[in-house]
């Protein structure tokens, strides 16, 4: 149980996928201009991550012990088909959300956070339960980082920022400061 809590907190805060592994930066910088959208994208990503963790465990246990060189290709195919499924589901259930997410929903496929999750979980040889907890932590951590950046960006829209620094340059510097703040969590578990 303690191990599971540790895995969860570590993926959520200490080794946050966005701010310390640099995974999933494209949606992080691209769609984080409104709180609402970034929260929903974060949730969609968390959902895809949970399914990815499940699929990658099945693949690892039953297929890849026989053919390890197929790892990358089989992971990416499974992830791509999952995303297609989610895309159809979202289009059916909420056309407004579908329009709001736009190009970034199909691009979850090329979101390195998803593939990174599958690869990291494999490298750490997590079991099924550990993998799912890890995915949940990573997904929520991604959502947290997205929402934080979106909140800061919404604030900065009202303030007077020089034209030169506006856009990606400023977002990256904000992300750098956030990342510095998250480094503070590194001491969280050292006593235990």
């Amino acid at each position: 149980m303690q191990d599971l809590v540790w895995i969860f907190v570590s993926a959520l805060l200490i080794n946050n996928f966005v701010l310390s592994y640099f995974l999933g930066l494209c949606p992080f910088l691209g769609v984080s201009n409104s709180l609402e959208t970034s929260f929903r994208l974060g949730m969609a990503t968390t959902f895809v991550m949970l399914i990815t963790a499940l699929c990658s465990w099945v693949l690892n246990t039953y297929l890849l012990i026989y053919a390890p060189y197929l790892r990358l290709i089989s992971f990416i195919v499974v992830i791509a088909s999952t995303v297609q499924f989610i895309e159809m589901l979202v289009r059916k259930l909420s056309p407004a959300l579908f329009r709001a997410l736009g190009i970034f929903l199909p691009l979850i496929t090329t979101n390195c956070a998803i593939l990174g999750l599958a690869i990291f979980a494999t490298n750490k040889s997590y079991g099924l339960i550990e993998g799912l907890v890890y995915a949940l932590g990573a997904g929520l951590g991604f959502t947290l980082a997205m929402v934080l950046l979106a909140g800061l960006r919404e604030e900065s829209e009202l303030s007077d920022v020089p034209a030169l620094i506006q856009g990606t340059a400023m977002n990256l510097i904000i992300a750098g400061i956030l990342s510095m703040a998250f480094m503070g969590f590194a001491g969280l578990f050292s006593a235990a």
Binding site: L164, A169, L172, I173
Partner: peptide
């Protein structure tokens, strides 16, 4: 460390 990456890229973009 990670923050340095964000900051350096931000400044290069600038």
């Amino acid at each position: 460390l990670p923050p340095g990456g964000f900051l350096t890229l931000g400044l290069l973009l600038l």
